[in-house]
């Protein structure tokens, strides 16, 4: 009888996997084009990481970098010189880089307002900055993502790539991209597309399905088995379709793609996975309602992360 009981779980898991194949909806996505990246510096010890990430992306996408620093940054007195020197260094490395000047009229605005204005002015496709902005990571980065990122997460029209703990070789973080799949961070095609945009050639995509009590379609009469519960959640048409599309696309692109299952509180589990090694996390933040659960989870997650995170 014990053998049958363990087979019940095995049968359910296998059936759920085939159900996923049966129900998978067709998910299609275009990898977004990046013509212009807004690199937002602040003179903190995270600038090198932000710049490194933006450089790798600009090179792979053949995009232009616009370098900007909000009024109030640490290097404010010599901000112009600092940005010019960074732009010059980037140009010497073959990157098209220009300094985006701070408009006089924007000087009294908050940092996030200046950044949003610069993003609009430059028509950038992606912005890269550190979180917390205008602070060294060591000062309060472990406790807070800062007001600037809080607001940009809600209001930015373009994805925001936030650097966290300083990295010696930020480009390594783009060799592996982690995309969580849970109902509360439902990634959808847009996040999937950006995952492919970020990952370096020959890199690896890690899909992580996390179950807690959140899978809305998990039958309640199931045995308490994490694998089954995740499998049950994954047979939702859109989740299964997304996984299928990611696997197919990565096979075509010669990228590694692995799907793992985990169980527990979403933010805690995801942060634990994401902080194990150098990688970049892609999380959707939609709808961008600052009092909504999804937004608050992303905020809590970014606070826990030590690696860069792209908020789509």
């Amino acid at each position: 009888m014990s053998e049958i009981q363990s087979d019940d779980k095995d049968i359910r898991t296998n059936v759920e996997r085939f159900e996923a194949a049966a129900r998978a909806s067709k998910v299609e996505f275009e990898i977004p084009r990046i013509d212009r990246i807004l690199l937002v510096l602040d003179g903190s010890n995270q600038d090198a990481t932000s710049e490194g990430l933006a450089t790798v992306l600009a090179r792979s996408a053949e995009a232009e970098l616009r370098i900007f620093a909000a009024d109030g940054s640490r290097r404010d007195p010599d901000r112009k010189d600092y940005l010019d020197r960074r732009a010059e260094a980037l140009r010497e490395n073959g990157i098209r880089a220009e300094v985006e000047a701070l408009e006089k009229s924007a000087e009294n605005l908050k940092a996030y307002e200046q950044i949003l204005a610069a993003a609009e002015r430059t028509s950038c496709d992606l912005m890269v900055l550190c979180a917390p902005y205008l602070e060294d990571f060591d000062s309060l980065g472990r406790e807070s993502v800062g007001t600037t990122l809080d607001i940009l997460m809600c209001r930015s029209a373009v994805p925001v790539l936030a650097a966290r703990e300083p990295r010696d070789d930020p480009g390594r973080c783009l060799e592996k991209i982690l995309l969580p799949i849970t109902p509360f961070l439902d990634p959808g095609a847009r996040a999937a597309a950006w995952t492919f945009r970020l990952v370096r050639e020959g890199g690896h995509i890690q899909l992580l399905a996390i179950t807690g009590d959140e899978w809305p379609e998990t039958p309640t009469d199931m045995p308490e088995n994490a694998e089954i519960r995740v499998a049950a959640g994954l047979h939702r048409a859109e989740a299964a379709g997304l996984i299928a599309a990611m696997q197919r696309r990565s096979a075509e692109a010669g990228l590694g793609c692995r799907m793992d299952l985990a169980s527990g509180e979403v933010v805690k589990v995801l942060a634990e996975w994401a902080n194990r090694e150098e990688l970049t996390v892609v999380v959707p933040c939609c709808p961008r309602d600052p009092v909504g659960t999804a937004y608050q989870r992303v905020q809590a997650l970014v606070r826990e992360l030590r690696n860069p995170v792209l908020i789509v």
Binding site: A21, A24, A245, S250, G256, C257, R258
Partner: peptide
């Protein structure tokens, strides 16, 4: 049926 939904890790 989309068999790619069954793939955990191609490697």
């Amino acid at each position: 049926f989309d068999e790619w939904a069954l793939v955990r890790d191609r490697t």
